[in-house]
């Protein structure tokens, strides 16, 4: 009898407990993002210096990593952005005072710090590189030319380099 009374009381007590029925809502936030790249600038700081470079050899060579005669450029873009660099390794130099051409073989080294002797030779046709935190990347331009069959005169030519964001 006592057991039945206890059971009845427990049942009644349970009946007094309010039932909370609420719809549970789960939420999540998603970030949408896009990085707009800045325009890339190429600034020439020094041109290659061939003044009084002649020697015993007919081949003139300016090492872009080691020579003070190397040309220097800085590329400016979006900080830390990756870019692809490509340049024409072989270009013709034309004699501005007469006939004849010379073939100049460009060599380029690069670094994200302004230290020529620690720069890396960029000897592949296409390289994937990265601007530094200030959005800069330094380039040193050298190369070699064979003067053994060159006509006397002054020669000039172009250096073409392409940089685009990846």
């Amino acid at each position: 009898m006592t057991t039945k009374i206890y059971s009845l009381l427990i049942a009644l007590l349970l009946g007094l407990v309010p039932v909370f029925a609420s719809a549970q809502t789960e939420s999540v936030s998603v970030t949408v993002s896009a990085t707009v790249q800045g325009e890339i600038e190429m600034i020439t700081i020094n041109t290659m210096d061939f003044q009084n470079i002649g020697g015993e050899s007919d081949i003139l060579n300016i090492n872009p990593i080691q020579s003070e005669r190397a040309g220097k450029m800085v590329a400016r873009g979006t900080p830390n952005a990756e870019f692809r660099l490509n340049y024409l390794r072989e270009r013709e130099l034309t004699n501005v005072e007469g006939t004849g051409v010379l073939i100049f073989n460009y060599e380029v080294s690069g670094s994200d710090v302004d230290e020529q002797d620690s720069s890396e030779m960029l000897d592949q046709e296409v390289r994937q590189l990265e601007f530094n935190g200030d959005g800069e990347f330094y380039l040193w331009i050298g190369g070699l030319v064979d003067l053994s069959n060159a006509e006397p005169g002054s020669y000039e030519g172009e250096f073409t380099i392409e940089i685009e964001y990846i």
């Binding site: 998603v30 970030t31 949408v32 993002s33 896009a34 990085t35 707009v36 790249q37 325009e39 952005a81 685009e164 964001y165 990846i166």
Partner: peptide
Amino acid sequence: DLEFEGPIV
């Protein structure tokens, strides 16, 4: 994220 990948100019 829902990221628009570059290069975006």
